[in-house]
Design a binder for these strands. Structure first.
Length: 443
RNA sequence: GACCCCAUCGUCUAGCCUGGUCAGGACACGAGCUUUUCAAGCUCGCGACGCGGGUUCAAAUCCCGCUGGGGUCGCCA
């Protein structure tokens, strides 16, 4: 049976790169009807934090990545020590103070990588360095091979060793991980052999890079999955984008569901080259998902954010919110953008940027605004249709173009020169705020 | 520096395995249409096989070299 694992270390938040590794493992498990194991690599007791672990689990759940089993390496220390002891007894490992080291044999190792094919290493290049970074020479003047730490001097097991034992004992069939682990692979294969385990298949994923071409980092933008969550990206959009970064269904399709990816997924189709993370494309995909989502669901997604933003506890009128969302649906790439663009509706008073204020004042429509206010005040049912009818009447009576009034009004009402249709905007803004802002425009 | 990986539009990619389609799509960008503005939508445009050698009737595709980029060289994971 196919069994894969994602093995994050709880020393930081779930990273975009880690999320994609998890995602590809998960897709492979699902596509092969196999199992997906989550293994928390918390052997470093100093750096591992419970809050990070919870955040990682939370982000995985948010992305929809469910696991069949979960393990904690911190609970398996005895197991690692037993195996180290066995290696000691077999003479393959040796003690160095309180630490146990694996004696590195001098030989070549072939790694078959499912994505890259055969990779050959020679441990003759795994040379120990001295404090100055120079090769350490043995008695006969030749470089000393670097032995691998199994158990550290403080008694805790080292990463490579735990990883090998766990993958073997948990029955992991495929190790799918980042390309940064390629050079760990030969050492681990040596350990599988020493322990008498058969090695799993390996697949090394290309790395994700920042827009500057370097490693994805905070400098280039948000790196934590939770950052994207807070910024109002939808999990399905992030999953879609991350999948597209290094994998493609091959039919020119860019927007695809999780279920179709599961159906078409294949490790062999994963790209070899590193990919640059593009926020523009993520935004576009997110906008596509928002446009495809039904209005009531979007409202449900938006309500907690609106409450938090407005600091209000009373229930919001859903029918009203649906009208607003409908109006803005094609105009907000993220949920936060929605909040920004519609803030003028929820706020009691708005501030107008100096340059727009100037535009407004220069249009000199005080008299027309007053006439319109009088006209609109008489409307009983303040809906777009009625507003437009009355507005057209006023414009006709004044013998001016509709646009002469539309533009200054939009600025006065919304604080912005751009936005959806004016009459719909007035309807969702409501009669009270509309009349108030129109009256105060030239005050 | 040593070892390893990689290389198609600015970016993500299809095509490469099994040589022969004007090298296809998407984001971004530019132009137009539509429109009270913006967005959305539609149409059009810009734009790539890193370089050099082979192999072949024919190379993005196979081979070699170079260059460039990335990764690893922790008692971190």
């Amino acid at each position: 049976m196919i069994k894969v694992r994602f093995a994050p270390s709880p020393t930081g938040y779930l990273h975009i790169g880690g999320a994609r590794t998890a995602l590809f493992n998960w897709f492979y498990a699902k596509s092969q009807k196999g199992k997906f194991v989550l293994r928390i690599e918390d052997t470093d007791q100093q750096r591992s934090k419970k809050e990070y672990e919870l955040e990682i689990l939370d982000s995985m759940q948010w992305l929809g990545l469910d696991w069949d089993e979960i393990f904690y390496q911190s609970k398996r220390f005895d197991l690692y020590r037993q195996h180290a002891q066995a290696l000691l007894e077999k003479g393959i490992a040796y003690k160095d103070g309180d630490a146990i080291l694996f004696k590195m044999p001098k030989r070549s190792i072939k790694v078959y990588d499912v994505i890259r094919g055969e990779i050959e290493f020679d441990t003759a290049h795994f040379i120990a360095l001295d404090e100055q970074g120079k090769p350490r020479l043995g008695e006969r003047g030749e470089p000393v091979l670097k032995d691998e730490v199994l158990i550290k001097a403080d008694g805790t097991p080292a990463y490579s060793f735990c990883c090998v034992i766990d993958d073997a004992l948990m029955g992991i069939s495929h190790v799918i991980r980042g390309e940064d682990h390629i050079s760990n692979t030969p050492k681990q294969i040596l350990m599988y052999e020493a322990l008498g385990f058969s090695a799993p298949k390996f697949a090394h994923l290309p790395l994700i890079m920042g827009e500057d071409g370097g490693r994805l980092s905070k400098r280039t933008g948000a790196v934590a999955v939770s950052d994207y969550r807070h910024k109002g990206y939808l999990p399905e959009a992030l999953v879609n984008y991350l999948t597209l970064l290094g994998w493609s269904p091959g039919n020119n399709q860019e927007i695809f569901s999780v279920s179709s990816t599961i159906k078409n997924f294949s490790i062999k189709k994963i790209n070899k080259a590193a990919a640059v993370f593009s926020l523009d494309k993520l935004k576009w995909i997110n906008a596509e998902y928002i446009k495809a989502k039904d209005v009531p669901s979007l409202v449900e997604l938006l309500i907690p954010r609106l409450k938090e933003n407005q600091n209000r506890q009373e229930p919001l009128d859903k029918a009203w919110l649906e009208k607003i969302v409908k109006l803005y649906k094609k105009r907000f790439p993220t949920l936060v953008d929605f909040l920004d663009r519609t803030a003028f509706i929820f706020k009691e008073d708005i501030s107008i940027a100096p340059e727009l204020q100037e535009t407004l004042q220069q249009s000199k429509r005080a008299k027309e605004f007053e006439i319109l206010v009088t006209k609109l005040r008489g409307i009983e049912s303040f809906d777009a249709e009625t507003i437009e009818k009355d507005f057209r009447e006023v414009v006709a009576a004044l013998d001016i173009k509709a646009s002469d009034l539309v533009h200054p009004i939009r600025i006065a009402l919304t604080g912005s020169a751009v936005g959806p249709g004016l009459f719909e905007t007035m309807e969702v803004l409501g009669k009270k705020k509309t009349l108030k802002r129109l009256s105060q425009a030239y005050a």
